[in-house]
């Protein structure tokens, strides 16, 4: 079998992988982009509109993939890398399709998975039909298939984030603002329904986030209650009964809702299997630990293997694309010095 040769193999065809492929191609590097699914776009494909400006997520994916097409950058779809080993300064990658690829550098853009909330048993996910994840809600919004006429919907922040009980201590960064975005979308969908966000802290850290929160309060009358959901049960009318603590009022609180949206957090996507000689250090939250989080955010503990996007921790789409572009500079620098 012939070995395909590239300077850089990018693993993962989400927004990070696509953005990095285009940048590396522009810099004259010979790259290939590898994606396990049938189409490019990764997790962003699961979103309908994105914060903070309600832009259709497909616009971002389409724009990035059009660039790839225009530049005729090779893309291998439905291909997963099963094994990576090092070979005199280069890397040999084997795929599930039987290909063998030799490359000078590997850029990991494997991204994240969303937390499976059935581990938070008290929320009743997978048990009560009207409990769904934020990702499932996006699909329903996209296809207009939510199919209920609710009086009240609650969105629970930090599901699978900042929670020692499920061994997830980290903040997933995007859930707060995603919840505010989805709350507004729900309100527009069901103008007479009461939409409530149940939050621990509201982390509106980026440009436009705080403004969106303010807008949600003032223009859309979204209610915000500071308190983490402790238990969800079903009453005889099949409404969901929520037990929370209104930590600002300092009192326990009980309320019924017709639908419960769980803002599921981000966790590291599985990496390809590496040969024993390759050591990729991970941080405590399971994502890749960059060599230097301030100065070398895309360099891993293994020379020649780089990371970008949410492979090194939760990020917004904007941060992911910037990080991918920064990673392409790090890769170029490495190739030039080699």
């Amino acid at each position: 079998m012939t070995t395909l040769k590239y300077q850089t193999v990018i693993i993962g065809g989400g927004v990070a992988g696509m953005a990095a492929a285009t940048e590396l191609h522009k810099s004259g590097s010979k790259v290939v982009l590898i994606e396990g699914n049938k189409k490019l776009g990764g997790q962003v494909n699961n979103w309908y509109k994105v914060f903070p400006n309600f832009r259709p997520a497909s616009e971002i994916v389409n724009s990035l993939s059009t660039n790839l097409l225009k530049d005729k950058i090779p893309v291998l779809l439905e291909t997963s890398i099963t094994h990576i080993e090092s070979n005199s300064g280069n890397y040999i990658l084997k795929s599930n399709q039987g290909q063998v690829i030799e490359a000078e550098t590997v850029l990991l853009a494997t991204g994240f998975n969303t937390f499976d909330p059935s581990g938070k048993e008290e929320y009743g996910y997978g048990i009560y039909p009207n409990v769904l994840t934020s990702v499932e809600l996006e699909q329903r919004l996209k296809t207009n298939t939510n199919g209920i006429s609710p009086k009240r919907i609650a969105l629970v922040h930090c599901v699978g984030s900042r929670d020692e009980k499920v061994n997830r201590l980290h903040c997933s960064k995007v859930c707060c603002v995603s919840a505010v975005k989805q709350a507004i979308e729900l309100k527009e969908f069901y103008p007479n329904a009461e939409i409530i966000c149940l939050y621990m802290d509201l982390r509106m850290y980026d440009n436009g986030f705080e403004e969106l929160y303010r807008d949600a309060q003032l223009q859309h009358n979204i209610k915000f209650i500071r308190g983490r959901l402790s238990e969800c049960a079903l009453n005889i009318e099949k409404d969901l009964v929520l037990k929370i603590q209104d930590t600002l009022a300092g009192l326990p609180m009980k309320l019924t809702v017709d639908q419960l949206i769980l803002m599921v957090g981000k966790e590291a996507h599985q990496l390809p299997q590496f040969d024993e000689s390759i050591i990729i250090e991970k941080a405590s939250h399971g994502f890749i630990k960059p060599a230097d989080s301030h100065l070398n955010p895309n360099t891993t503990s293994q020379p020649g293997i780089f990371c970008c996007g949410t492979t090194s921790g939760p990020k917004t789409i904007q941060e992911t694309i910037s990080d991918a572009r920064s990673a392409s500079l790090a890769v170029c620098d490495y190739l030039n010095k080699k």
Binding site: D246, A249, L251, P252, M253, K254, L255, T256
Partner: peptide, 9 residues
């Protein structure tokens, strides 16, 4: 003991 819970409904 009367309940101190806020009954939002």
């Amino acid at each position: 003991t009367p309940s101190g819970t806020i009954n939002y409904d």
